[in-house]
Amino acid sequence: MRPLSPSMLTLAAALVACSGTETPDAPAQSGPAAAEAPQPAAQPPEPPALDKDALEAQAKDVILVPSPSEMQDALAEAGVAQGLSALVGDRSVRMESDNPDVVAVRTGVVLAYALLTVKEADTATLLKRLDDIKAGMTALGAGTDINATIDDIKGRLSSDSLSRDDLLAELDEIHGAIIPEIEYEAGARVVPLIQAGSWLAGVNVVAEAIVQADNATAATRLLRQPEVADYFLQYVRTEGSDKAPPEVIGRLEQTLTHLKELATRPELTVDDAKDVKARTDNVLALL
């Protein structure tokens, strides 16, 4: 048998190396791209036959909400150069409250501010935000692990042994991985409330950046998140309806309903972004 040439071996190796994943551009049910790819050792099964209704019926919302950092990246991708850090500036959040639901939302807000300013804020401001997050977690009974993690981060930040890139990774870990797991200590309702605070704060500064950039395309791309608005809206109307002050619930419901309604429009304007900014300002001011 004739041996493969080096170039053929290289091609074969490249094909094998590329065979781990694919991004089909057509529904799997109508002809899988797998047939065109090199055959792996064992054939993977066809994707489950799930139509839109079946997906929706089974969907869990645990990973639904974009993080503030993700929104910032999407903003840059949409051509808005304005960094969100400057818009957050030295905004602070009052953490004292007798209402644990309000504390949870505020903790989410301050976590968003920390994430969005991690590269530019001075160390004292970041340390204050870490203290606020820790105070919130303590008030929520989130357990000792997360506070130990925050203390460790603060220690390294204070001693200049933690780069801002590493700090961003640490905060991202708290937001994306550690907080979703505090439901065992703090209760399941705390997690969506923290997420709601982070998301609202993120939407608020994203809207402001879009207004400053006068970029309607970015408004259309980024401010239409009906599923997230609906997720929190359902929560506010059921689980949270009797837990927070009525004026907060009422304003939150109005704002979320408006954000959901915006998504039904084919295109948004800069005036829509101004409206989102004003409405989320009002909610954040009530907290």
């Binding site: 089974q58 969907a59 990973i63 993700e70 991708e77 990774a169 991985a177």
Partner: peptide, 27 residues
């Protein structure tokens, strides 16, 4: 890479979990 979230569940053989997500354009 940055992380949005992690989650864990236990499934029976052949069963599946469906997670809804809002993904951002261009990311």
């Amino acid at each position: 890479w940055s992380v949005r979230t992690r989650t864990t569940s236990t499934l029976q053989a052949g069963a599946l979990d469906v997670y809804a997500m809002t993904l951002q354009a261009g990311i």
